[in-house]
Simulated scan of single mutants.
Amino acid sequence: MAGPTNPPGGSGKDESINFDDPLYVHPSDNATTTIVTVKLTGNENFRIWRSSMSRALKARNKLGFVDGTFRKNNVETNKESKWERANVVVCSWLLSSISDSIYASHAYSDNAQEIWENLFETYNKADGSVVFNVHQRINSLKQNGLSVSDYFNKLDTLWNEFDGLTSVTECTCEAAVKLNDHSKLMKLMQFLSGLDESYNQVKSHICSWIHFLMLKLFFQ
């Protein structure tokens, strides 16, 4: 007697599995999986860590477990155990991505949203010394033989970190546009000032039209 056959084009796997369901956990995404390379160490890298973790969770359709959009009371009673399993996995991902000193304060937490919110409340602070340190590193960074691309990438990383620490309320008014243009000019001059002497001729050429741009910006 012939055994059961798969339907045309079928794989023989359970077709009822919904890979877009937040409750679905891929076999490779278990509780011991490391989903980000950045470890949270404190105020100084919280925004970078949060951004990296948010992307990683969103890619796995698990962001709802931490931002409150997919809570246990959102699922049917017969799926609550699946929610609990997925929640524990997300908890493990969060806890495995923080330093040992921070881990101790959250080791017994069993709700991913609570861990996420507690970390936000504790470390989403622009400590003055941190802001000063980043600003100082920006001002002291020089090319010193690096390739232009490597030098720019280092400077751009510091700029992004500084902008994250000193971010202001978003605005789309005309003044905000001019302020953004001014910020870009300041960054360009910062970049040029750190280039090696071998680029002096290039710097001189660029600076000749920076002056024109600044006049245009402030007297429009």
Rank of each mutant, 00 (worst) to 15 (best):
D29H: 01
Y123N: 06
D67S: 02
F120D: 08
N78Q: 11
N139P: 00
N45T: 13
I206R: 02
G42N: 07
K203V: 15
L57P: 05
A176W: 06
N133T: 14
V66C: 05
G10P: 09
L94E: 05
L141Q: 00
Y103H: 11
P7R: 11
F70K: 03
D127Y: 09
N124K: 13
E15T: 12
F19Y: 15
D110G: 00
G128M: 03
H26A: 14
N18E: 03
T32S: 15
T172H: 10
A59I: 10
K13L: 15
N139T: 10
T33Y: 03
K187G: 07
D20E: 09
H205V: 08
L158Q: 02
H182I: 04
S149Y: 01
G164W: 05
A31M: 12
S147N: 01
T122D: 05
N200K: 06
D14V: 06
K178H: 11
D196F: 05
G9C: 09
P27S: 07
F152N: 07
D20R: 12
V148G: 00
L192G: 08
M214D: 15
I102G: 06
A175S: 13
S92H: 01
T172Y: 02
N153R: 13
R71L: 08
S16P: 01
I138D: 00
S28A: 11
E117C: 03
S193C: 10
T166K: 05
I102L: 00
E161M: 09
E84M: 10
Y151V: 08
S105V: 05
N118M: 02
D29M: 08
S140C: 04
L155P: 05
L213Y: 06
A175I: 12
I115Q: 02
T122Q: 13
K154S: 14
N200I: 05
A112L: 06
V88F: 10
R71G: 14
E80V: 15
N73H: 09
L195S: 07
V90F: 01
N6G: 03
S51G: 13
D156E: 13
S193G: 15
N6P: 01
K184N: 08
T41E: 15
R55F: 13
C207I: 15
F70Q: 00
N61T: 13
V38T: 15
F19T: 11
L94Y: 05
D21C: 10
G194T: 04
D150L: 10
L215Y: 02
E15W: 11
S198R: 03
P8H: 01
L23E: 00
W83A: 08
T172I: 06
T33N: 08
S11R: 09
N144K: 14
F162E: 04
F65Y: 10
H211F: 08
L63W: 08
V75P: 03
D150W: 00
P22V: 00
D29I: 05
G12Y: 04
L23K: 03
F132I: 07
F191I: 09
L195D: 04
L195F: 05
N73T: 11
Y199C: 12
N30E: 12
S81C: 07
H135F: 12
K203I: 12
V130Q: 02
L158I: 04
P8V: 08
I48D: 00
A175N: 03
V89K: 02
G64W: 01
